[in-house]
């Protein structure tokens, strides 16, 4: 390994994993855009009220988990990569829980949809981008953690 790469790796001992943490923050922000948009749909049926209630609770859980993960990956904790990957995949699944059904339902005879095309596109873009950010953050952290572990082991071996 050349010296530049070695120093870059050594810097990880003292510099936080900002790229992973920032991607996690971005995922939270995109999720905020999503839920602010999705709650504009207001259909007076019991089914949607229950679903939206559950969605609100999940959003709170998501933000908490994503924020905890951002702090974890910032400090090169590998376990938070798994959590990030999990909530990242769930973001893709969420597309089929609210936006797709909303988009498919037509209100009465008017032909209008619960969620119009523009809003639907915005919601799925936000969810996909949020999921991609989280998975990317998890992958970067995973790779960096492995590099750092190997580097620390080599330093310890040198000392010994």
């Amino acid at each position: 390994m050349n010296e530049e790469k070695l120093i870059k790796r050594d810097r990880m001992r003292f510099i936080k994993n900002k790229s992973s943490a920032n991607l996690a923050y971005l995922a939270i922000l995109l999720n905020v855009f999503y839920f602010v948009s999705v709650y504009q749909s207001d259909v007076e049926t019991y089914y949607y009220k229950i679903l939206i209630g559950a969605s609100i609770i999940y959003n709170l859980i998501f933000m908490l988990a994503a924020f905890l993960s951002s702090e974890g990956v910032k400090n090169y904790q590998k376990s938070y990569s798994y959590l990030e990957a999990l909530i990242g995949v769930v973001q893709f699944v969420r597309i089929f829980i609210l936006p797709v059904p909303y988009h498919n339902i037509i209100i009465g005879d008017s032909g209008a949809r619960v969620m119009e095309n523009g809003q639907f596109m915005f919601c799925i873009v936000c969810l996909i981008a949020s999921g991609v950010c989280l998975i990317l953050s998890a992958v970067i952290n995973f790779i960096k953690c492995n590099e750092l572990e190997a580097h620390i082991k080599s330093l310890e071996a040198q000392k010994a």
């Binding site: 530049e4 120093i7 050594d10 810097r11 510099i15």
Partner: peptide, 9 residues
């Protein structure tokens, strides 16, 4: 350069 900073620190 971050690598130079690292060395100096």
């Amino acid at each position: 350069n971050p690598n130079v900073i690292h060395k100096k620190v």
